[in-house]
Write a protein that binds this DNA or RNA. Structure first.
Lengths: 209, 209
DNA sequence: CGAGTAAATAATCAACGAATCGTTCAATCG
DNA sequence: CGATTGAACGATTCGTTGATTATTTACTCG
């Protein structure tokens, strides 16, 4: 059990180092095998393929940032609007800097999301759950008045897509993105405060006022 | 004057046909020349290069849709919110269908926007002006209460980026995009109604209430 | 049987010459 | 002399070939 998991982790560590430094496509399974003192073939006892190693690394990073973002739920003395602000800007800044300081991640992320669309949705869902809880918090405190927090979370994600994968959609510098995000945030928050009638039209559960 | 313009148009028509049918990269200047009964070299008396022909075609389409979108400003008996709804959904549906029925346009648009970023901004600006006027209309009718309509228009564009080039950012079918756009629209409109304090932080002209 | 290996296979990549293409320009035409 | 041509040029693309690479499989060892 644990010995198997150790080898598993050893491979991930070696891969992380190589992928960061040389990029996904420039590192070979043979190199990974050398790093782990084993034959290339044996790697396949631990991972179904090269792409699965990358996916595993990406998933770890993704759950990590989701966890970081989840912490905006519990920092004391903040309004729901402030928590939303924290969430959006932390997300923007963190991914912006991550992609800036080691651009090799971009390659890996692009390949994984292109090859495995479900994986990407999984990450979005993790973050959406935090957003949903922020909205719920706002409802409870009387700050917001949103009938369907899950749907609202989905809409917030749609409206802030541009800021989720900064250098993928635009080539704007961080301060310009921050300026735009600030503006979008303000409209969104005003909408949530006003208790927009936003209900998922597919959930036909009549929300009658 | 007019003879020159005629030739100009003849080239554009031939290019439009070829680009639509075979795609930008699959059509050669030599083919265009044959279509126009002239030598390849002579094309350069009318256009600086192949890319400029494509840009010209794209600009025509872009101004055309901007004009169509501008018409939501004048259709009688609509609130500003309804006009915004018209604008966003017309934009989504029109570009979605356009890209669906001849996908060759996608290639051309991608190449032009990649090679000439300014061109893309030009198109965005054209549409933003309409958005800005919609917001102004809402302010005048007392429906909205937005201090800086130009900035608000920019933010609406940022928040609806996902719906501007549908099949470029996602692979969602039209009805899913429409569902999301409806939700985003509702939040945005609620925000505009509430008179979100959204002011461009760079314009330090104190907007004092 | 679990862990590992090494060789075989099939898919992908890289290199490189050939062909094509966009663009230019000296020469020609009307 | 302006309009047009088509050959020429450099850049890009293309197709082929040979080498890498990911993955599988048959086998060994404890």
């Amino acid at each position: 059990m644990t010995v198997h998991d150790d080898t598993h982790q050893k491979i991930l560590d070696a891969a992380k180092r190589r992928f960061m430094h040389y990029g996904y496509s420039k590192t070979t399974m043979a190199e990974l095998a050398v790093d782990c003192d084993m034959s290339p073939g044996n790697l396949y006892r631990y991972f179904a393929g090269k792409l699965d190693i990358a996916e595993s690394i990406c998933r770890e990073a993704s759950t990590q940032t989701a966890e970081d973002l989840g912490r905006v739920l519990t920092t004391p003395g903040r309004t729901a609007a402030q928590r939303l602000h924290d969430f959006l800007f932390m997300d923007l800044r963190e991914t912006f800097h991550k992609l800036e300081e080691d651009p090799k991640i971009v390659e890996m992320a692009q390949i994984v999301t292109a090859e495995r669309p479900e994986f990407h949705n999984e990450g979005l869902k993790r973050e959406r759950e935090v957003l949903s809880r922020i909205v719920e918090l706002g409802n409870l405190s009387g700050e917001f008045n949103v009938p369907d927090p899950d749907f609202a979370a989905e809409m917030i994600q749609a409206a802030t897509l541009k800021f989720s994968y900064p250098q993928l959609f635009t080539r704007l510098p961080l301060h310009k993105l921050e300026r735009e995000l600030e503006g979008v945030y303000q409209i969104l928050v005003a909408g949530l405060r006003a208790g927009c009638a936003c209900v998922d039209p597919e959930k036909k559960q009549a929300v009658i006022a």
